[in-house]
Design a protein around this nucleic acid. Structure first.
Length: 292
DNA sequence: CCTTGAACCTGGGCGC
DNA sequence: TGCGCCCAGGTTCAAG
């Protein structure tokens, strides 16, 4: 499911329920997801207050009142949902047995804010997601974060950055944009969409784009704008992405390339047909006529 | 260092 | 209905 826009939508949905809440207990329905949960995961979360819910690339970061950060990655199929827990009696007396878990519900956080209780459930059929608990100062050195590239909606992403970082790369621009060590947060959908908006062929080498000042600038703007447009639409729902209130995302209706194989190109006065090809094992959708 | 491809998992869709 | 195959929003690890 989730690329940067979907994760940001999840963050915005979870924040009102989580920021300021205390974790009263945690249910772990298995030993781990893609990786094992950290030692005593549930016990270390219980009793902690969540100070803030942030995001780095495709990761959610919950800052806790003991200086630790709960990190979560949603993999391909992870999702969170919030349910009001009207029956919960305040601290120390939860009756978890009342709730029937859905298939693939792996983690349940029981929360209280004041007199209100809620539970936040992580569901992930494919279990490519992961969670960890890291001390805030150690986060930058953590293996999952140390190598992470630029935040694409930050101030530093511009044509100059792309020119500098792509100059020596002979891989296709498609692969370079998916490389989280350079720009962190793009995935298959938004790379296809950004390249379509830029009029750049996914088959071009990163280096060839880096040489053209106009193209790097156009690409930087397209990346930022497609992410902003997707966030404004609540993300893209292909299968299972939901906003935390259960609403679907709507950006999939605005796709110009992704998933449109055989359909006419949306570009004004372009008579091209969107084609699908495979690059490094993943589908690329593009218009061979206007993406050069 | 660089690049590609397989692996990790489950489920949905399609052809037969 | 059922089976087999292909495909899927991501990342990591091994191998060339």
């Amino acid at each position: 499911m989730p690329e940067l826009p979907e994760v940001e939508i999840v963050r915005r949905g979870l924040a009102p329920a989580m920021e300021g809440a205390t974790i009263t207990s945690v249910e772990l329905r298995r030993d781990g997801l893609r990786f094992p949960f950290p030692d005593r995961f549930g016990a270390r979360l219980a009793g902690r207050k969540i100070l803030a819910l942030g995001r780095r690339a495709k990761y959610l970061l919950a800052d806790l009142d003991d200086g630790m950060v709960l990190t979560a990655h949603l993999g391909m199929s992870g999702s969170f949902r919030i349910e009001e827990d009207a029956d919960a009696v305040l601290p120390g007396n939860f009756d978890h047995g009342r709730f029937a878990a859905a298939k693939h519900d792996h983690v349940v956080l029981h929360l209280v804010i004041g007199t209100r209780a809620a539970r936040v459930t992580y569901n992930d059929p494919r279990r490519f997601g992961y969670m960890d608990l890291v001390a805030r100062p150690a986060l930058v050195d953590h293996p999952h974060f140390a190598g992470l590239g630029l935040e694409p909606l930050g101030n530093e992403l511009d044509g100059g950055f792309i020119a500098a970082r792509f100059a020596a790369k002979n891989t296709p621009i498609k692969a370079a944009l998916l490389d989280q060590r350079i720009i962190a947060g793009l995935g298959n959908i938004y790379v296809c969409e950004a390249l379509w908006r830029s009029g750049l062929s996914p088959l071009r080498t990163a280096a060839s784009v880096a040489q053209n000042r106009r193209e790097t600038r156009t690409l930087a703007i397209a990346i930022r704008q497609v992410l902003l447009d997707a966030i404004a639409a609540g993300g893209s729902t292909l299968r299972d992405h939901r906003q935390t209130d259960g609403q679907l995302g709507y950006f999939q209706h605005a796709f110009d390339a992704y998933g449109r194989e055989g359909d006419p190109c949306h570009r004004a006065s372009c008579a091209g047909i969107i084609e699908r090809l495979v690059q490094s094992g993943r589908s690329t959708f593009h218009c061979p006529r206007c993406q050069r």
